[in-house]
Design a binder for these strands. Structure first.
Lengths: 244, 244
DNA sequence: TCAATGCAAGTGTGATCACAAATCAAATAA
DNA sequence: TTATTTGATTTGTGATCACACTTGCATTGA
């Protein structure tokens, strides 16, 4: 009954990899996605299919499909030259992104505030502790871990909103604002950072109290901060460049 | 200076086709997109790459890229078998979609209400007239044209919201609710239709008065109707199926 | 008659090739 | 020196091929 590639019909092995093996295309897509959310690509940077294929040690085929998907999500931009780049930062786009994020993530956290189980609340509380811990030993600014932890914290909440429609939209928004955020976080580090964990604590407290309005307000403050910070920075640079 | 393929550097010809020639991939993507929004595919219908490639008279390559893009937009669904289908309709998904559409399209129309130029308002007013005209000679129920006109009306408004972030999200939402809508419209036709143009008139009136709240309320009523109608129908069927 | 087995057609995935367009660089002319 | 042109390299796009997996049907066995 069993062919040479027998493992797949072995019930035990099947349980270890039950969801169907991952395709190269998905691996590439997730890899690029992670890089974009983490801000590993600079705004306006152009990406080539063959370049990425070499970097990811695969052929061009999975890369071009992944790029196409990211372009439809507006995470990347297709130039008329048919080359693709990560979208440049403009003030209009930042304001636009922030408004959309306030609208949608605010709704998601308001829904989640009345739906999170005590188990889930415990999880985000422990993330709070992990955040403090990382902040305590700040011998080196581990921006990567900061970004990752921030993402995990927010999406642990968003997942609890119970909407299979809103969550992908939020992911798309993070994908689009990833490059901006990274720039903003670096700017923060230079400028002597405010305690970002404060807002997170407020969020957890509000959710524990099932106070949807308070949770939404704290979230708005949390996600607005890097945007307004970066906005001020860009405006200052623009003014300086104008006078020079 | 000019090569043998001279036309592209001719300024006049360049103006006629300024955006770069269209790729087959984009044509296929737009074709499938149009079919999905128009509800030409049934819920749960499975699509094959080679089948679509034959139907669209191209190779498999552009089709697989288009399918990948539509899957990331949640307009299509990837089964663990690696086959793709248009997502089935469930009550939860409908409620989820409607809530998201109220949130986002409501915000978009509220923004548009204070930004539309008199030129744009004239455009949607004329669409109103076209709608009445079509409704007048209702010798045959031209569902396709009804869907197309409805789409044109709404997106003429949404485009005026001035957000390059919200509009793609709305397009994604229409893509996802397309199959449901088509089913609902057919159900309407059977059940003796309410005057859908009434809400559209209210919307135009509110926008002309720059009354954002009124416009949002009318829009919510407009897009809720087919959903609640279909919801009642599905619930009735479920109850009947349960008792039988 | 019905379940199990085995074969065949169909399908998605990834790699490679061919081609046209774009980009870049060097060489030439003004 | 500067601007223009020409040639080579790079790049995206579409087609085709090879392979593995799934699905469906027919044959075989009890």
């Amino acid at each position: 009954m069993q062919k040479a590639t027998a493992d797949k019909s072995d019930p035990i092995a099947a349980q270890l990899a039950p969801v169907g093996r991952e395709t190269v295309q998905d691996r590439v897509y997730l890899e690029l996605r992670r890089a974009l959310i983490g801000g590993l690509f600079e705004p306006s940077q152009v990406l080539t299919i063959r370049g990425l294929a070499d970097a990811l040690m695969t052929s061009t085929m999975p890369v071009r499909e992944a790029l196409g998907r990211l372009i439809t999500e507006k995470a990347l931009e297709a130039l008329p030259n048919r080359s693709v780049r990560v979208p440049p930062i403009t003030l209009e786009r930042m304001d636009d992104l922030l408004r959309a994020r306030i609208l949608i993530e605010g709704e998601a956290i308001a829904l989640a505030a009345t739906r999170m189980t005590s188990r889930q609340i415990t999880t985000i509380e422990s993330m709070l502790g992990e955040w403090d811990e990382m902040r305590a030993l700040k011998h080196k600014k581990d921006v990567d871990r900061e970004v990752t932890l921030n993402q995990a914290f927010h999406f642990e909440i968003y997942r609890a909103c119970g909407s299979a429609v809103l969550i992908p939209m939020i992911e798309s928004l993070w994908l689009q604002s990833g490059p901006c955020i990274r720039v903003a976080i670096y700017a923060f580090s230079d400028a002597g950072e405010i305690d970002t964990a404060h807002y997170h604590r407020t969020i957890v407290k509000a959710i524990a109290a099932q106070d949807a309005k308070e949770a939404r307000d704290a979230l708005v403050a949390d996600i607005s901060r890097p945007f307004t910070f970066l906005r001020n920075k860009l405006e200052a640079e623009a003014k300086k460049g104008q006078s020079a």
